[in-house]
Amino acid sequence: METEMDTAVARTARQVAEAALSWLDGMRGSFALPTDTPDDHVLGDALKALAELTLATALVRREAIAGPRSADLADRLLDFCWQQVGQGELLYRLQARTPAATYPMEIYAPFAAAGYRHERLDRLAAQLYGLRAYRVVEHVPNRRLALVSAAAKIGVAVPDDLAALTGQTWLGGTPEPWMLDPSNAYGVTHTVFHLTDWGARPEGLPPQLQDYLHQWLPAWAEVYCETRLWDLLLEMLMVGTCLGRPLFSRAIWEQVAAAQRADGMMPNGMTKPPADPHRAWRNHHHPTIVAVAAGTLTLSRAVSHAATGARSKT
């Protein structure tokens, strides 16, 4: 029965991810950064959207479980993202101009993990991560974990105390579960993502936090499914795939699939998207990107889990 459930979840997750990726490919032009614009103006929503697309498509490449068409779309979108940042040159200029900024390295990290490298940015990263200033960046704790994760992807060892940083996060304190609100929920999901490298290393999440999430993640997912906060719900489904004993919910994935539009776009809450896809992109590209990442990781872990279960019975 468990193997059958894994298979059903994998099928639905694949369908959602493939449809979402197809929509993102069709909206590729909306992700293009403005041209003939000073570097300082290439910030905000445009760069954030491109960074999110980079991360999702890099995960598709890393997991290597998508069908041929989706794998090709993800590769082409990742190439597109790399071209948009000038093959890393834009990120290098932004980082060199504002050495204390952390976002250029965070954007570069998934590119580097996927094999896209910029030699001068690599050298600059090694220099900046070695400064005393790096160790006192005043970010909230889960954002500090993001810096550690980015450094690891780029290939720079940093001296941060992961256990101490984790203990300072909302999740690390294992609070009363009813105190979770959307703001802290996003912190929880990203704490897990950074500690496990987006599910690649489930062992990076301490056992006590794995137990805590096994107990409360299903209830939280039910709440955010009822409120139709699809991007947050999909992030929680991703968290379930990052655990040593992955959590899947066939019923919730079926509701996600039912909410997805026929063209592959995921809605943003209960807001009715405008008919014009380019206007819809502004508020709905983020949950659609998360659908690609969540569907990919769920498919990968469900297939692996089902195979492990089948072998254990032989």
Score class of each variant (00 low, 15 high):
residue 138 E to W: 13
residue 140 V to L: 12
residue 164 A to S: 11
residue 181 D to V: 07
residue 179 M to Y: 14
residue 153 K to H: 14
residue 183 S to E: 15
residue 137 V to P: 05
residue 184 N to Y: 12
residue 179 M to H: 15
residue 177 P to V: 02
residue 171 L to W: 03
residue 155 G to H: 05
residue 145 L to N: 04
residue 146 A to S: 14
residue 138 E to I: 13
residue 178 W to G: 12
residue 181 D to L: 01
residue 170 W to F: 12
residue 163 A to H: 05
residue 154 I to M: 11
residue 156 V to A: 09
residue 144 R to Y: 00
residue 134 Y to Q: 13
residue 155 G to V: 04
residue 141 P to C: 00
residue 169 T to V: 05
residue 162 L to K: 01
residue 145 L to M: 04
residue 177 P to R: 10
residue 161 D to K: 12
residue 154 I to N: 09
residue 136 V to A: 09
residue 176 E to V: 15
residue 166 T to Y: 02
residue 144 R to I: 03
residue 159 P to C: 13
residue 145 L to G: 03
residue 174 T to M: 11
residue 182 P to N: 06
residue 174 T to W: 01
residue 150 A to M: 04
residue 166 T to H: 05
residue 142 N to G: 08
residue 136 V to G: 08
residue 180 L to I: 08
residue 183 S to N: 14
residue 135 R to W: 01
residue 151 A to P: 04
residue 156 V to Y: 13
residue 157 A to Q: 14
residue 159 P to A: 14
residue 177 P to E: 11
residue 153 K to M: 14
residue 139 H to C: 07
residue 174 T to N: 01
residue 151 A to D: 10
residue 157 A to Y: 10
residue 139 H to V: 09
residue 166 T to M: 06
residue 181 D to Y: 06
residue 188 V to Y: 02
residue 185 A to P: 10
residue 175 P to Q: 13
residue 177 P to A: 00
